[in-house]
Structures are given as structure tokens and as C-alpha cells.
Design a protein around this nucleic acid. Structure first.
Length: 720
RNA sequence: GCGCGCUUAGCUCAGUUGGUUAGAGCGUCCCGUUUACACCGGGAAGGUCCUGGGUUCGAAUCCUUGAGCGCGCACCA
């Protein structure tokens, strides 16, 4: 029979995808409510829900986002077709420090100005506009990817509803003593001029000089002479025989950088006797470990370096100098005084840098806000936040894929310290605390009364994303969405944010709702270039998803990211692979043309009977579909996609279609062949749809309509 | 230092609980346009499944030794 003339040409994704997406969007079927209302989903159906890991509004989507959304959209479409009330909720993340840092960089490059040239309000507005523009671009990109997201529920981590959620969470934790303010050792980023959490530190291996100095009768080693001005405590192991004659608390006068100082002996088993001389001096203000010691023995703590990385007056003649400059000069001076013992030029160690700005972290003691992870919580059976994070994974209530990340997760929790949540940046959720004289109030609503001033710090962006699974569903209101869709079924982030995000979501959901945030965590890997390098701006190896889509189509790009890529494994992006699946889209197109030419006029309701060998083929397909369904239920998309590809091309096209040609030629069991081709095609289109939604939907629109009418393929029933 | 992962065809990788001659895509070579498709079909070459040892009737798959690469975590001054 005659087929649609579109079918006579090769498949052209550019001519198809935009139109198809509009069709889907206008149908309203991305919303589970409308699916129920329009009768394609039963009101009593089981639910399936996912929140999209909100992309940062720092720029545009990259290949990592494509992978993530391809995976999620495939699952969402599968579950929707199986008749579940399926919600996939979109949103974006204000990504406080990342967005502000990016904006400031551009601002400086373009105008030479910095945040200090604007009022707080003005600057906030500027960053905010920058973020909103990026958000707009990204939402467009998500549509290009075919994402079946429910746009009516679009959320942003910094919008009004999420602000309410953040403040409500903060206040509850504050009232229960889980959030406190205190002078504590924090990670100060002199470049970004803000604190960062332990998780935002990136360690870099580096070669530095390691100096050994005479310190009275001892020799001490350091890579950081510029911090040594306040070192008036000498620490050694209590069992170290070499220093037996010194007792804890002994005092002695030693010649040091700026003249003699009085040093005090501290004996503590923290010292590794094997390392160096077994003696060290401590700088409690600028070292985490030293701070712990200082607290233990109630030692003086003196600040040596200011927040701009310059030495303070305690450094005497070196005051005001930058660290790098001072270091050289201090060593010079000590050498002149005869106190320099040796310099090791090849000392490799790891230095802490800030994830977003690359700044060298300077530990500092500062007044900041923290989340206490070790405090027993009466309202949660005296469990700690650590317990609340640990338990649901341990008990299996939350399943992590691949499983090996569970170990990393436990390990992280065991080593977890209180979470520093205050940031000295402007773009973000301002801390909902107000001060007047020495009084302090934590409130959900702005304090408008005379004389009260709000804290100037903002919250770590991960504080708001930690609430994401339920803040997007309306919490703290008692909404129907929350009752209907929480806990969510699946979350699908990259493994690199297991701690930043997944752990914190579990913590907040467990604490605030007394429930898990999701049942399964499917961690995906990183998309690298063909040489295995991470995509990055500096490496100039970035590939724009749009470029690939323009050339090969979204379906091809999506398939290339799903087939054979298991959970947690990185994938090297390879255009050849995309190209191959572009060919596959065309193969589906051409096979469909043949089938529709041969069997497009069959009575769908009453297909001819199958002969023996076709019956066998039919059974095989059923078996395959069962297998694929099981794989999909277990989120093994990498297997299901490969199987369906293999079957379509090498069984359906290469064997069954070729066989049918003979039957048509010989006019032997031709009706059976027609029926087989037709039913095969319609099953295969359905099974392929979650993976390659565009080309399958387009072909589906050309399939003959039965008496029961025809729906969009996206809401047709899954074949098994 | 502790822990985890990877190593399969020239390249990028699959291989689900151990089971016949180990697979795909791309690339290479040969042949082929007579009812879809050259974005194609048929065929071929190409593999010590990192190394050594073990368990087993049987190992790419399980255990173990070593090597190379990668990752996570950790207070070595």
C-alpha cells in the first residue's frame, strides 16, 4: 500500500524532533495528573517519581547532563508506558558559590569591576539575572533532549517556595540545637573570600620545599615557615626516649624568627615518633590538627595570617606581606641567624584547594554556622544525624547502584565532621537569623522590628539541594504531591556528588520527614572525551550537545550514552558510536517503510493467523520483551538497550523481513508474514520508544489506526 | 597509609548467577544494488580475555600473587 511520503526519504531527525516534542508537550502527558484526567493512567495506579538532579545555573548543559537525562527519561517513559502514575520533576540549582564565582569572573573580565563596586542588593540582582538567563537556556536544551519532564512543577533551589523550605528546615534544626554558631576551625578560601565545607576541598599534589629549623634544643620541620610566628608550643610523644628529660609543661626560652620566645613542652601521643625528629611545633589558628591539640590542653591560639592571605602584626617586620613573599624572607632571616638546618627541595605533599575558585585553602578559626552531626536528637530516638544517614542504606531501605559505593558512603560518614554551612558570599539563601545588641533570633519570616539586623552570610548551596526531593513537592506544606510522590522512586546523580548531595538528602529527609528521600540511587559515571580526559573549559575538549544533535539526532545521542554503559562506569564519548545509532534510527525508519508498504492496510483488530515458523518468531519476541522488561525494572538499561538493538537489526530486519520477501515472492503464507511483520513492528516501536522516543513516535503516527483509536506512543501500553 | 575499581579484537567498550566455536560498534579486506535501507546486505581477517598460581568436569567470569592505570578517604608536622 501507499505510505506517507515522508517515509520515502531517509529519516531526518532535524525535521522531526522539534515537532514531536511540541506534540508531547501540548498533549499534557508529561504531567501525571493529566494522564489520569485524560484516562491514559488509572487513578489507582502505582506511582513512580523522580526529581531531576537540578543542573547548576552556571552555564549551559554539557554531555554529563545528556547522559543523566537520557537515563532518567528512558526510565520515566518506560514507567509511564507501564501505566504508572509517573512524575519526573524538573528544576535547576542556584549553585551559590559556583554561579557567583563564574559571574564575578566574567564581570571582572568584561568591566574590571568586582562585587565590592555594588551594593548587596544590586549585586544579588545581577548574579540572579545571570542565573535566570542560564536557566532559560538550559530548559530549552532539556526539551531538545526529549526529556518528558512535568514542566508545571518546575522548581528552583532559590525560589520563594524553596526559600520557605530552607528557612523552615534551618529553624527546626536551630531550635533543636542541630545548627549552632561557633568559633571553629574552618576552611577559608582567600581567593573566593568565603569558607567552604570539607567536601568542597580538592587536594592537589604539589612539590614544595620542606625546611628543617633549629628550635632551641630541637629540630622541627615545616613546609610553611610563614605560619610559625605563634609557635610557642613544642610537642613530642610521651614515650619518646630521646626527649625523656623534658616534661609536659616545661618551659624554655628559644631564639626564634623575631627574637627569643618562651616555649612550652607538650607531650601527646598524637606525635608519630618515626616522622622527622619526632618533634613539632604547633600553629593552632591555621591547622586543624593543631587546633584539636590546643583545645585539649587549653593553649593560646593566635592568628598569623589575615583573610586576604597577608601576615598580621604578630609577624613583626614581615607584617603585611603576602604568604609567598614572606616565606622566602623568613627562611633567609632564619638562615642568617644560623637556625636553618636543611632544605628538602623535593618534598611532595597534598595541598588543599577550593573546588570552585582553585584558591589555596587557609585554615582559620572563625565564627561560623555548623550542622552538628554527632548530637543525639530527642525527636528521633536520640539518634544522631550520622545515624540517620547510615541506617537506611545499611538496612537496604535505600539501594545504591552500583553497590560498591555503599562502602565509600559508610567510610565518609565515619570520618564526617560538623558541616560548616555559612558562606561569605551574596548569592544564596541568607541565613534566617537576626541580631540586636547581644540578642539573637532565628525566624522563618523576616524580622521587621526596629534595630534587628539579619546575618550577612548565606547558606552552602547543598543545604537547599538537600531538601530537593520534598521541597519540590511542596514541603513544608502538607501537600497532596508530598503524600502522592514521596519517597521518590529513583534518584540518578553522578557518583561525584554522592557525599555533597545524596548523603545530605538522606540526612535531611530522615530528620525532617522521618522517611527516606528515595528508594534507589543509581549513580552514573563521568562523560569523558575519546581520550578518556574529563571535559573541561581549560582542556578545550568540550563538545556541544547541540552540535551532535544537529548532525545525528537526539535519539542517536541518547542511545550512544545508554547502550553498554553500566551504573557508575565512566564513558568515553565517541562520535562514531553516535553515528552508529544514527544509522540505527534510519534502519528503524526503513524497516518501518517496508512493513507499512506490505502490511499497512491490515485489519489491526483481526490479524491473519501465523504459520509455524512465524509463531516461533513471535514467541521469541515475547521472550525477549520479558527479558527487557525485567532488565528495565532493575534499571539495567545498558543491557535492555543492547538487546533490543540487536534483535531489531539482526533478527527482525536481517532474518524476518528477508524471510517475508521470499514468502511474498512465492506467495506462500504471505498473510502470516504480513501479520508477523506488523505485530513485530508495533511491539518493537513500543519497546524502543523509551530509548529512542522521537523516531518511534514519528513512525507511530503513520501506523494504521485501529477501531479503538490511537494514542501518542508515549502513553501506549508497554507490550508486556 | 586504608579502601575501591579497571585491564577482553587496531580503537571505544558489552559479556547479567562459571556452561558449546568469546561478542557489538567503528576501522581493514573481498563480494554484492533482482519488493525497505549504500545511513545497506553477505563474507573474511583480527583476541596468550594483563601476568603467575589455584578451585572445578568446565574459568574472561570464582579464589590468590604480581604489574600497570584510575578513583575515594586519611591530622604525617
Amino acid at each position: 500500500m501507499e505510505v506517507n511520503e515522508k517515509l520515502l526519504k531517509p529519516y531526518d531527525p532535524c525535521q522531526t524532533e522539534e515537532k514531536i516534542y511540541r506534540l508531547w508537550e501540548e498533549s499534557g502527558f508529561f504531567s501525571p495528573d493529566l494522564c489520569v484526567k485524560k484516562g491514559v493512567t488509572s487513578p489507582r495506579a502505582e506511582y513512580f517519581s523522580m526529581v531531576l538532579p537540578p543542573p547548576n545555573v552556571t552555564g549551559r548543559l554539557h554531555m554529563g547532563h545528556v547522559l543523566e537525562q537520557a537515563l532518567q527519561d528512558t526510565v520515566a517513559r518506560f514507567e509511564r508506558m507501564r501505566g504508572k502514575k509517573t512524575l519526573w520533576l524538573p528544576g535547576t540549582d542556584h549553585a551559590a558559590i559556583a554561579t557567583q564565582a563564574r559571574f564575578e569572573k566574567d564581570l571582572h573580565k568584561e568591566t574590571g569591576k568586582s562585587r565590592h563596586d555594588f551594593s548587596r542588593e544590586k549585586f544579588f540582582k545581577m548574579v540572579s539575572n545571570f542565573g535566570l538567563q542560564n536557566q532559560k537556556d538550559m530548559l530549552g536544551q532539556m526539551r531538545l533532549l526529549g526529556a518528558s519532564l512535568d514542566w508545571s512543577r518546575l522548581a528552583f533551589t532559590l525560589d520563594e517556595k524553596r526559600e520557605l523550605a530552607v528557612r523552615t528546615a534551618f529553624k527546626k534544626m536551630y531550635d533543636e540545637g542541630l545548627i549552632y554558631r561557633g568559633h571553629r576551625m574552618v576552611n577559608w578560601d582567600p581567593k573566593g573570600q568565603t569558607t567552604i565545607s570539607d567536601d568542597e576541598i580538592v587536594y592537589e599534589e604539589r612539590k614544595d620545599k620542606f625546611y628543617t629549623f633549629k628550635y632551641g634544643p630541637f629540630e622541627i620541620g615545616t613546609a610553611r615557615p610563614e605560619t610559625k610566628f605563634g609557635d610557642k608550643y613544642v610537642v613530642m610523644h610521651p614515650d619518646d626516649k630521646r626527649y625523656k628529660k623534658w616534661k609536659h609543661g616545661d618551659k624554655l626560652t628559644v631564639e626564634w624568627i623575631n627574637g627569643p620566645i618562651e616555649a612550652t613542652i607538650i607531650k601527646d601521643p598524637i606525635i608519630d615518633m618515626e616522622f622527622g625528629t619526632g618533634v613539632m611545633t604547633i600553629t593552632p589558628w591555621h591547622s586543624h590538627e593543631d587546633f584539636v591539640l590546643a583545645e585539649k590542653y587549653d593553649l593560646d591560639k593566635e592568628q598569623i595570617i589575615d583573610k586576604y592571605g597577608k601576615l598580621l602584626p604578630i609577624a613583626g617586620e614581615f607584617a603585611g606581606m603576602k604568604i609567598a613573599e614572606a616565606r622566602e624572607k623568613i627562611v633567609e632571616k632564619l638562615q642568617k641567624k644560623g637556625l636553618l638546618v636543611s632544605v628538602n627541595e623535593n618534598y611532595t605533599h597534598r595541598v588543599a584547594t577550593a573546588e570552585r575558585t582553585g584558591g589555596l585553602i587557609e585554615p582559620q578559626i572563625m565564627m561560623q554556622w555548623f550542622v552538628d552531626v554527632n548530637k543525639p536528637i530527642p525527636s528521633r530516638g536520640n539518634k544522631t544525624l550520622k545515624d540517620l544517614m547510615y541506617e537506611p542504606v545499611k538496612s537496604g531501605k535505600i539501594k545504591v547502584m552500583p553497590e560498591r559505593f555503599e562502602k565509600e558512603y559508610y567510610h565518609w560518614i565515619e570520618n564526617l565532621r560538623d558541616w560548616c554551612i555559612s558562606r561569605q558570599i551574596i548569592y544564596g539563601h541568607r541565613i534566617p537569623v537576626w541580631y540586636k545588641d547581644s540578642k539573637i533570633r532565628c525566624e522563618i519570616k523576616d524580622v521587621e522590628e526596629e534595630g534587628w539586623k539579619q546575618d550577612t552570610d548565606t547558606l552552602d548551596t547543598w543545604f537547599s539541594s538537600a531538601l530537593w526531593t520534598f521541597s519540590t513537592l511542596g514541603w513544608p506544606e502538607n501537600t497532596k504531591d508530598l503524600a502522592d510522590y514521596h519517597p521518590t522512586s529513583l534518584i540518578n546523580p553522578g557518583y561525584e556528588i554522592l557525599f555533597f548531595w545524596v548523603a545530605r538528602m538522606i540526612m535531611m529527609s530522615q530528620y525532617l520527614l522521618g522517611d527516606i528521600p528515595f528508594r534507589t540511587v543509581y549513580l552514573h559515571g563521568i562523560v569523558r572525551d575519546s581520550k578518556g580526559q574529563k571535559f573541561s573549559k581549560s582542556a578545550k575538549n568540550g563538545i556541544e550537545p547541540e552540535e551532535i544533535i544537529k548532525q545525528y539526532g537526539t535519539d542517536a545521542l541518547r542511545m550512544s550514552m545508554i547502550v553498554g554503559v553500566g551504573p557508575g562506569s565512566d564513558l568515553s564519548f565517541d562520535v562514531q558510536k553516535v553515528k552508529a545509532y544514527g544509522k540505527f534510527a534510519n534502519k528503524i525508519w526503513n524497516a518501518s517503510r517496508f512493513v507499512l508498504e506490505q502490511a499497512g492496510d491490515l485489519n489491526v483488530e483481526n490479524l491473519p493467523k501465523l504459520d509455524e515458523e512465524d509463531k516461533k518468531a513471535d514467541k521469541e519476541l515475547v521472550k525477549l520483551l520479558k527479558e527487557i522488561t525485567k532488565d528495565m525494572e532493575e534499571y539495567k538499561l545498558y543491557l535492555a538497550s543492547e538487546k533490543i538493538y540487536e534483535y531489531f537489526w539482526h533478527t527482525f530486519a536481517d532474518i524476518l523481513i528477508e524471510r517475508s520477501k521470499k514468502k511474498f515472492q512465492e506467495n506462500r503464507n504471505a498473510d502470516s508474514a504480513r501479520a508477523l511483520l506488523f505485530s513485530h513492528l508495533s511491539y518493537l516501536l513500543k519497546a524502543l520508544h523509551p530509548f529512542m522516543p522521537f523516531v518511534t513516535e514519528e513512525i507511530w503516527s503513520m501506523m494504521p489506526e485501529g477501531p479503538a483509536g490511537k494514542k501518542l506512543l508515549m502513553v501506549e501500553k508497554w507490550p508486556i
